[in-house]
Amino acid sequence: SSYVCVECNFLTKRYDALSEHNLKYHPGEENFKLTMVKRNNQTIFEQTIN
């Protein structure tokens, strides 16, 4: 599966890399929402900020 930060167009295969991205680029933000999307037999988790 892949993880994408929709706000930044940041894409990674690792959830911990997304967490690091959030700490660096969205410090103090807590209203993240992950949406699971299936595309071409791949699972993509799209992160948006509410």
Rank of each mutant, 00 (worst) to 15 (best):
1 S>I: 15
1 S>W: 04
1 S>G: 09
1 S>P: 00
2 S>P: 07
2 S>I: 11
2 S>N: 10
2 S>D: 04
3 Y>K: 00
3 Y>T: 08
4 V>N: 05
4 V>S: 13
4 V>W: 11
4 V>T: 12
5 C>S: 01
5 C>G: 00
5 C>P: 00
5 C>L: 01
6 V>A: 08
6 V>K: 03
6 V>Q: 08
6 V>D: 03
7 E>R: 08
7 E>C: 09
7 E>T: 08
7 E>S: 10
8 C>S: 01
8 C>I: 01
8 C>L: 00
9 N>I: 07
9 N>F: 11
10 F>K: 04
10 F>T: 09
10 F>Q: 04
10 F>I: 13
11 L>G: 09
11 L>F: 12
11 L>E: 11
11 L>W: 13
12 T>S: 04
12 T>Q: 07
13 K>Y: 03
13 K>G: 10
13 K>N: 13
14 R>T: 15
14 R>Q: 14
14 R>A: 15
14 R>C: 12
14 R>L: 15
14 R>V: 15
15 Y>C: 00
15 Y>A: 04
15 Y>Q: 15
15 Y>M: 13
15 Y>F: 07
16 D>K: 14
17 A>N: 06
17 A>E: 14
17 A>M: 14
17 A>S: 14
18 L>Y: 05
18 L>Q: 02
18 L>I: 09
19 S>M: 11
19 S>T: 11
19 S>W: 04
20 E>V: 06
20 E>Q: 10
20 E>H: 12
21 H>P: 01
21 H>D: 00
21 H>E: 01
22 N>Q: 02
22 N>D: 05
22 N>H: 02
22 N>Y: 01
22 N>M: 03
22 N>C: 03
22 N>W: 00
23 L>C: 06
24 K>G: 09
24 K>N: 08
24 K>E: 07
25 Y>C: 05
25 Y>S: 13
25 Y>L: 13
26 H>L: 00
26 H>I: 00
26 H>T: 01
26 H>Q: 00
27 P>F: 10
27 P>T: 11
27 P>M: 11
27 P>Q: 09
28 G>F: 04
28 G>N: 04
28 G>Q: 13
28 G>A: 09
28 G>P: 04
28 G>L: 06
28 G>M: 14
28 G>C: 06
29 E>H: 10
29 E>K: 11
30 E>A: 14
30 E>L: 13
30 E>I: 09
30 E>R: 09
30 E>S: 10
31 N>L: 04
31 N>E: 07
31 N>C: 02
32 F>S: 13
32 F>R: 05
32 F>P: 10
32 F>N: 02
33 K>M: 03
33 K>V: 06
34 L>G: 10
34 L>C: 03
34 L>F: 02
34 L>Q: 13
34 L>R: 09
35 T>D: 15
35 T>S: 12
35 T>H: 05
35 T>N: 04
35 T>G: 09
35 T>Y: 01
36 M>K: 10
36 M>A: 12
36 M>Y: 05
36 M>R: 12
36 M>G: 15
36 M>D: 14
37 V>K: 10
37 V>N: 15
37 V>D: 09
37 V>M: 08
37 V>H: 03
38 K>Y: 07
38 K>E: 08
38 K>P: 06
38 K>S: 08
38 K>F: 02
38 K>M: 06
38 K>Q: 12
39 R>P: 09
39 R>D: 13
39 R>W: 02
40 N>R: 04
41 N>E: 12
41 N>F: 03
41 N>P: 09
42 Q>P: 05
42 Q>M: 11
42 Q>N: 14
42 Q>K: 15
42 Q>C: 07
43 T>C: 11
44 I>R: 11
44 I>E: 11
45 F>K: 12
45 F>A: 14
45 F>Y: 15
45 F>H: 15
45 F>G: 13
45 F>T: 15
45 F>N: 10
45 F>V: 08
46 E>P: 01
46 E>D: 06
46 E>M: 02
46 E>Q: 02
47 Q>R: 02
47 Q>A: 01
47 Q>E: 01
47 Q>T: 01
48 T>I: 06
48 T>Q: 06
48 T>C: 10
48 T>Y: 03
48 T>K: 05
49 I>G: 05
49 I>P: 06
49 I>F: 11
50 N>V: 11
50 N>G: 08
50 N>L: 08
